[in-house]
Design a binder for these strands. Structure first.
Lengths: 168, 168
DNA sequence: CCCCAGTAGTTGAAGTCTCAATATTTGCTG
DNA sequence: CAGCAAATATTGAGACTTCAACTACTGGGG
């Protein structure tokens, strides 16, 4: 009933792997913190909330079903519910009923929300550049993208049934 | 009074950069979630708390000053205070006064804490392997380590005075 | 048509994190 | 050595996340 501890003798991380792993943990901790602060200061919301608005802004009609939005941002529906409630209070997002499915809700980016994005986007992009892209060579950027996509694939929704042997 | 938005005309992210950035955000979101769940289930604590114990276990005397522990794990002293308070309640960590500086406190890993680490380490390592190292080539692992170290350097404590022009 | 397992989304409580304020101590400076 | 800015660590309030219910609706099989 346990995915991992079924191992007979654990293969510990090598020195190099440990180094890499700590670097990963440190970098991601600092980065999230960095962006949260930058956006909290400039936009009055954490990074995740900003992401939600970005994803909505790119969607047709600037709207998405809650579940779809949750999947695209890799968060739980519950977390999204709370987040949208807050964004709604701020006036950046509005909820709308789904005509074809009475259970469904759309999260819709408001004009105010869009405007706010326009205002804050330059600062956010600059922060990302300064922390990430400005410091990496083109090869490293390419490599980073590939690696992160591999990780994502491995943890994705497939997650649900990932430990079922007959599904790869 | 604003670090980023001093830019005259923002350099938006290219298509490739966006792709990389989203991959980064998705992968790190999923990874943190994955490890938090795994450790919450097996060790009854979030990933950060587990990291604190790991770092303590590697320190001489299995103890560190609060500030030192906070710096090594890249979190604020405040966050650490709360975390240690919780870990203390669980009996994994104990606080001790610092003799040479009456303001100081040591966080000390207890025997119970150490034992718990021993028990949970295999499962945790397995989770990290399965999500990360098992999926990457040796070259990718090396590259990932380098990239993450670069990011860390850029965001590090130097952070505090990073936007002062006369310090690089 | 009814049943019912499954899906969409929300809710509340408990746990965690942030931010600003606080208490205490240090060590430099005059 | 008195005064004070800086450092150590903690605290509480409010914001955010998680987890486990819970409501409401859907869609397919008897």
């Amino acid at each position: 009933m346990n995915t991992a501890s079924t191992e007979r003798e654990p293969r510990w991380l090598t020195y190099e792997e440990q180094r890499t792993w700590f670097a990963y943990v440190h970098a991601t901790t600092l980065m999230e913190d960095h962006l949260d602060r930058q956006l909290q200061r400039d936009a009055g919301m954490p990074h995740l909330y900003y992401q939600l608005l970005v994803v909505l802004s790119a969607a047709p009609q600037r709207r998405l079903r809650m579940t779809e939005l949750a999947m695209r941002t890799k968060i739980t529906r519950s977390r999204l519910s709370h987040a949208v409630a807050r964004l709604e209070k701020n006036g950046w997002v509005r909820r709308e009923d789904c005509p074809s499915d009475k259970r469904g809700q759309f999260a819709v980016l408001t004009d105010g929300g869009f405007e706010m994005l326009s205002t804050c986007a330059p600062g956010h992009v600059a922060a990302v550049r300064q922390a990430l892209f400005d410091r990496l060579s083109p090869e490293q950027q390419k490599s980073l993208g590939e690696i992160m996509e591999i990780i994502t694939e491995g943890l994705q929704p497939a997650e649900a049934g990932a430990d079922l042997p007959w599904l790869r």
